[in-house]
Simulated scan of single mutants.
Amino acid sequence: MITKERPPALKPPELQRRYFWKDIWRDWQLYALLILPLAYFILFKYVPMLGVIIAFKDYNMFKGILESSWIGLNAFREIFQMDAFYNALRNTFVLNVLDLVIGFPVPIFLAVMLNELRIQWFKRTAQTVLYLPHFISWIIIGGMATQLLATNAGSVNVFLNSLGLESIPFLSEPLYWITTYLGTGIWREAGWGTILYLAAMTGINKELYEAAEVDGATRARKMWHITLPGIKPTIVILLIINVGHMSAIGFDRPFTLANPMVADVSEVISTYVYKVGIQSARYTIATAIGLFQAVVGLIFLLTADFVSRKVNDHGIF
């Protein structure tokens, strides 16, 4: 009797490799869809990271990055001796902390309130009105703020003057400027954040609300014991991301709202890098500041994720 020889048994790594390529071939259309996003991130996110070596070189645009001479950590020593850098760093942290403490809970509150609305047309209209400002450029918002809040000719102060009241220096005194900065940021971004929390609420089991209603729970109790715990993972992830951005700040918002009268509180890292790197053409210093900012942001992100995992068992990584 002739018996066929069995093929040699595949070792686990070989078996995994065969299944890997088999899965790739089976779903090649889905993997093909990843080509453009991957190319985008590689070309515009990872390749530019090679430019961080400018922070360690006496960069000369005519010589290029590779031909410029090395200076080691001299650029970092210089920025840590700049009073203007520490002022910009302080303002960045102060504005970001205020944004986090005051602005972060607003989308949660709005999402919970919208979720409780029973009139669907009003709910959709309110949601649309809330998130539309997200699509308005900060340049336009800056112009609107100037037209409405300027001390002498702003519409708000003209109205207050017509009532016999004094003008409010929304854009010309530090405390009022910070309030205006926070208010415009909340107005623009709160509605967009609300969408994320409303999407998270759709995953909450409706039977929990029905059971709570049978037990006689009020609407406030259902919000506190069902809705908020249901979106807790989303809240934690967004909070960690916001903490990770504590050392970073957008350029458009402080730049469009700032003016020389409030430079002591409006000068942040992004605007300072613009002035040093673009206006003064000190590319080495600007790159060193950007690298320092990125490293501090990474430390904040990892620390917030670690603390969140220890406390709430939720995190990003």
Rank of each mutant, 00 (worst) to 15 (best):
M1H: 08
M1K: 07
I2H: 09
E5T: 14
R6L: 15
R6F: 10
P8V: 15
Q16V: 13
R18N: 06
R18P: 00
I24A: 11
R26C: 10
W28M: 14
A32G: 14
L34F: 06
P37I: 07
P37W: 03
V47R: 03
P48F: 08
G51W: 08
I53C: 00
A55P: 05
A55M: 09
A55T: 04
K57Q: 11
F62Q: 12
L66H: 12
L66Y: 13
S69T: 14
F80Q: 04
F80W: 14
M82V: 01
D83Y: 03
A84D: 13
Y86I: 12
Y86K: 12
L89Q: 08
R90F: 13
F93M: 07
N96P: 06
D99G: 07
P105W: 03
P105K: 00
V106N: 03
R124Y: 04
A126M: 14
V129L: 14
P133F: 10
F135V: 06
Q147W: 07
A150L: 03
V156P: 00
V158K: 09
V158H: 10
G164I: 03
L165C: 07
E166A: 14
E166C: 06
E173A: 08
P174N: 15
T179C: 05
L182T: 01
I186P: 00
W187N: 02
A190K: 02
A190Q: 00
G191N: 06
G193W: 01
T194G: 00
A199S: 14
I204N: 11
V214H: 11
D215V: 04
A217C: 15
A217I: 10
T218A: 05
A220C: 09
M223D: 12
G230C: 03
K232M: 11
K232A: 07
P233N: 03
P233H: 04
L238E: 00
N242K: 14
M246T: 15
M246W: 06
S247F: 15
G250A: 13
F251Y: 15
R253N: 08
P254M: 07
T256P: 00
T256I: 02
V265Q: 03
A286I: 03
I289A: 01
G290L: 00
L291I: 05
F292R: 01
V295F: 15
I299N: 12
L302T: 10
F306P: 05
V307N: 02
K310Q: 11
N312A: 14
N312G: 12
D313Y: 12
H314I: 14
